[in-house]
Every structure is written in C-alpha cells, then in structure tokens.
Simulated scan of single mutants.
Amino acid sequence: MKLNLLSFAMLSFFSSAIYAAPTLYGEIDASIDYLPEKNTNSSNKDVWEISSNSSYLGIKGDEKLTERLSAVYGIEWGFSADGDSNDWVQRNRFVGLKDTQLGTIKVGKHDTPVKQLSSTVDIFNNYVANKADIGGILVGENRIDNIVAYESPTISLDKGVVKFNALLASGESSGIKTSSGGAKVAGRGLGDAWSASLVYEHPFFVAGLGYDKAIPSTFAGRGFLNVATGQSYTADTQAFAAANTLRAIGRLNPIEGLSIKTLYQRSEVEETTYADPAEATKWATKANNIDDAEGWLVGAEYMLPNAKKWILKAQYSQNDTSFKNNMADFKAKQIMAGADYVFSKQVKSYAYGGYLMLKQADKKDKQPVVGVGLEFKF
C-alpha cells in the first residue's frame, strides 16, 4: 500500500510538472537581398546583403488555477540571424491572469493593439530587415514598455466573432524615450498614453479599428532605402514623437484562396518632450514641424488552386507627411510583389521584388530590391 501511495504521489508530481512546463517557440528568417546603390558623388555599386527578418526566440506557459482562471506568462527575445547586430533585443514579455469568461490581463512590455491590427493586412511583414513592411514608412508600429494590457474573450456575433484589446502605459520618466526593441511613454500616471482596438472576424471578411493616444512612433520613415548611397535624400525629415494615430483595416475573402487586404490611417504629433537630451536635440525641431501623416495600403494574396503550396502576393503602400512653415510634403511609396512556396506549417521559402520612391520638393530617391529567403518556425 505504501508503495502504491508513493507511486501515485510521484506520478502526480511528474504529471503536474509536465503540464506546467513552458513552451519554447520561435522563428528564424533570413534572406539574401540585392539593393543596388546609385550614388551621386561616387561610382554606382552592386550591393548584396544578408538580412535577419525579425528572427526571435520565446518561452510561454500557463498554470491552471481554477476551472476558469489561469496564470499566464511569456517572454520573447529578438536575435540577429545574420550576425550583424546584438542578440537578445527585447520583444513582448508579460505575466498575467486569464479568465475564460472575462478575458486576460497582462503586465509587462507589449505590442500596441494598433500595431497588432497590421498583422492581418501587411503581406510583406518583416521583409528586408523590417524595412519593406509598413513599419518602414508608416507611423504606428510600436512596442511599449511598462504596460497593463487587456484582451477580451471572443464574443460571437452573426456568424463571426468580436474581440477588444486595450493597453495602458505608465510613463515613469520626464518624456518619451526609445528602448531596447520598443519605447517608453511620457508621464507618471497609468494611462498617460494608451492604445485600443476592436476587431470583427467573419469567414468572408475581417474589419478592425484602432487608436493610439500619445504613443511614441517614427514619422517620415524611409523604408528599405540603402542609406549608404550618398543620394540626394537624407534623414533630416525623419522624427520620433508621441503620436495620436487612428487606424482602420479590412480583409476580404471573396473566393477560396484569395484575400484582398487594405489599411488606412491618420496620425498627428501629440507630444515632443524627450527624456533623453540627446534625443531632444536630434528629434524635437523636426517633430514640432510635422502637421500630420496619412497612410494607406492595398494588397492581395492568392493561393494557386491546383498548386496550393504556391502563394502569389502583391502590395502597394503609401504615406504622406505634411509639415508646417510651408515645408513641402514628404511622400513615401513602396511597391512589393512576390511568391511563397510552403513546404509545411513550419517552413516556407519566398522570393520578392520591390521598389521604393521618396520625394520632398525637388529631392527624390528611388531604391529597388530583390531577394529570396527561408523562414523556419518552431
């Protein structure tokens, strides 16, 4: 009897340990990119680059506390698959509680709900070291330190589901500031900056609306421009500031295998107080001269009906930044097209080509890119 009781206790212990064990997951994504240089004051160059496209490693887990309540946690680090930069850049990390009926509360560092909306529509997300996705030219792709986030449970509505996400940030500093893999907001109170989104998912379409309030972001981004070219355009217009951004997204699935995706957003500068004097010197004058920014995209993906491992895709994105004091608008446009070959749920290869156009008054720049890559998820 004692032996049976001991065996039962050991079995219960190991079963509990296995159940509570964390899950290791991640992604390694690397591409070979060709970005030719067309130089103004020196000879043109053929430039090949190996890019790490948002490769990361994560650990997550949960512990059931009651029939409805679980403790949850997760932590992610970005790393350089090509070895060009430091490993273990901070990504999302949190600890929280999940109630199956009331939703999930997380505390830590996290993508804003507005940023999460773009994953539904940004077809070339993370390509060319994150410079060919919409984050290359649009405001609003942000991860914020010192947050409390809420994720609602899915609510059934007319053959679809509704989900609400919200994030409150605590500034904990005298101004906004960049951080490892993210940013810190200004202020001392919880909710001095916030972000929220509402999404409706239906078998035939997805619609979402989100808003950022005083979330630090980059205005007048430069996309996948090869900055070593010495061309006429420089980064003088680019600025980092707390932004108010309204973003709307939509995805339509009119026939099997086809998805049409779109996004529209408008942003304005809310705050240009910086915690770091160096950042104030670098960004303040530029940010104070910004009036607003308006961006949009349209794209499509199509799975070939007789060869379902092949996916064709294309996307056009544009962002116009307007300035005060009669400065000319800064216009950025990206055109991307490509194809994926899906080996399995974990592995795919891809090829793409793109073209970036930047313009402000008589300053113009153009940058082509072509590349091939391999993505492995685990």
Score class of each variant (00 low, 15 high):
K184C: 02
F323H: 02
Q360L: 15
S52T: 00
G74N: 06
F13Q: 10
K177V: 03
N130C: 07
L356W: 06
S54P: 03
G78K: 13
G338C: 08
M327I: 09
A20Y: 12
E27P: 13
I335K: 11
Y355S: 07
S156D: 13
N53F: 02
K282E: 00
R222T: 13
P113V: 00
L297Q: 04
V114L: 12
L263Y: 09
P153K: 00
R91L: 14
V47F: 06
V342A: 06
L35F: 10
G257K: 14
L6V: 15
V185A: 06
F343E: 04
G96D: 00
A361V: 00
S152E: 06
L258C: 07
D111P: 12
L117C: 05
K366D: 10
G26E: 04
D292K: 14
K309T: 03
V114N: 12
W88Q: 11
K359Y: 06
K2V: 10
Q101M: 08
T218F: 10
G96R: 04
A169G: 06
L168C: 07
T229D: 13
F13E: 04
Y302D: 08
G83V: 04
A81D: 07
W296L: 09
F79K: 02
D84G: 00
F343W: 05
V47Q: 11
K309R: 03
L297G: 02
V369Y: 01
F164Q: 04
L252W: 13
T234H: 05
S15M: 13
K286E: 02
D158R: 01
F94C: 10
N86I: 08
V342Q: 06
L263D: 05
M357P: 00
D29G: 06
Y264W: 09
Y341R: 01
L358D: 03
S118Y: 10
K348D: 01
T272I: 11
F79R: 01
E271N: 14
D111R: 15
L5S: 13
F164V: 09
D29V: 10
Y316T: 03
E294Q: 12
K213E: 05
A81H: 00
S156F: 11
T285V: 14
K309P: 03
D29F: 07
S174T: 13
T273S: 11
K106R: 14
A275N: 06
V89C: 09
V342G: 00
A243E: 02
F240N: 04
I75Q: 15
G353S: 14
Y316R: 08
Q116A: 15
D158S: 05
L297W: 00
F224H: 02
I59E: 10
I134Y: 09
G140T: 04
P254K: 14
A235E: 07
E301G: 02
V206T: 14
T273P: 04
Q367C: 12
T66D: 02
V372W: 09
T281N: 08
K261I: 09
